[in-house]
């Protein structure tokens, strides 16, 4: 079997999203197993400079659609460019990360290619000639294993599912014709929450607080614990209870109706662990919970728990982490 595996490389403001290098690494792993070649697709304005970085993760060819009109995302234009890249490259599988961009883009591409698609896969493997993907369903209360058929095929991979792995590729540039304006839809402006904050979905550590914090004043404990891990390492999340109470913005909510995160470490402070909250964090590698109720459901999914009052434990924990980092 000599398949072409095409990974979509997401860039914003000329910077490659780490999650798309994970998608590229998955493509490379599958190509190594099944035989075949890895290609990448890159869309944007003056982004060719990123090609050596992409080649460094195993891409033999990079299908490049460049135009000033593509500086910001347009689901309409990007999907047409990526579908064209998939056709030009002869891709049998198109992989992207399940990011805000990826989950808007790939279903459109899948429709343009009349392709089947698996969204938000957490495991992908080959069994003989078959591609088998597993994904959480019912908010992580069950996992569905799917066999895909037909070519091409589209897939999005949950961010932080596998570490990006460097591997030398040729990185030959192949130009794809850039769609021309007018577009049906386009991003007018990016409204960044704050540029020095690590986005929730990309952070290696997420520290989340719930109603157990008692008072919005005490949120400084959640932030303090996140900061204790060093600049840019940890992001802050929240349960719906505190979002609904107006302590925190909805953009910080973790769970079924909030963000899905899958960090190396998730710390839940004063969060009961309602099923809808677990939906957003149960694929985290390690979970630590601090809760005063020993029977709180959060302890059932936690690797490590401390039974206690967050207002009492967290200040000392912050000091202990700082001390450990300085040691």
């Amino acid at each position: 079997m000599s398949k072409i595996w095409l990974a979509f490389i997401e860039q914003r403001e000329g910077k490659i999203k780490k999650a798309s290098l994970e998608a590229l690494t998955l493509a490379k792993n599958l190509a190594t197993q099944a035989g075949g070649t890895v290609h990448a697709a890159l869309i944007g304005d003056s982004v060719q400079g990123l090609s050596s970085e992409i080649a460094g993760y195993g891409a033999e060819k990079i299908f490049l659609a460049e135009s000033p009109d593509l500086a910001l995302y347009s689901g309409d234009a990007y999907s047409k460019a990526l579908a064209q890249a998939a056709k030009d490259s002869g891709a049998e599988v198109v992989i992207a990360s399940h990011t805000a961009m990826g989950k808007d883009l790939l279903p459109r591409v899948a429709s343009l290619l009349e392709a089947g698609m698996v969204s938000d896969a957490t495991q992908v493997e080959l069994q003989g000639e078959d591609l088998i993907a597993t994904k959480p369903v019912y908010a992580g209360k069950a996992y569905k294993t799917l066999k895909v058929s037909g070519q091409p095929f589209c897939l999005t991979l949950r961010p932080n599912t596998l570490p990006p792995q460097e591997s030398a590729g040729e990185g030959t540039i192949v130009t794809v014709e850039a769609p021309a304006k007018p577009f049906l839809d386009w991003v007018k402006e990016i409204l960044a929450a704050s540029t020095d904050k690590t986005p929730l979905q990309e952070a290696a550590i997420v520290v989340s607080g719930g109603r157990g914090l008692k008072d919005p004043e005490n949120w400084k404990l959640v932030e303090g614990l996140a900061e204790a891990f060093g600049p840019g390492v940890a992001a802050v999340g929240a349960s719906r209870a505190v979002v609904d109470a107006g302590w925190r913005p909805h953009s910080e909510q973790v769970g079924q109706t909030g963000k899905v995160v899958s960090p190396t470490l998730y710390i839940a402070l004063g969060i009961s662990g309602a099923i809808q909250h677990l939906a957003g964090m149960s694929t985290s590698k390690y979970i630590v919970a601090i809760n005063k109720d020993p029977d709180a459901p959060i302890f059932k999914v936690a690797n490590y728990g401390i039974v206690g009052d967050v207002l009492e434990v967290v200040p000392s924990l912050i000091e202990a982490i700082k001390a450990a980092r300085e040691a």
């Binding site: 698609m117 992580g140 996992y143 294993t145 058929s149 979970i287 020993p294 059932k300 490590y304 401390i306």
Partner: peptide, 23 residues
């Protein structure tokens, strides 16, 4: 084009360990 192979409960998380009480 996507065929169900199986539906399963979530993969089990490691046994939880309570490290202790309070600070």
């Amino acid at each position: 084009k996507v065929e169900m192979v199986k539906l399963a409960p979530p993969p089990p998380r490691p046994e939880p360990t309570i490290l202790g009480e309070g600070p």
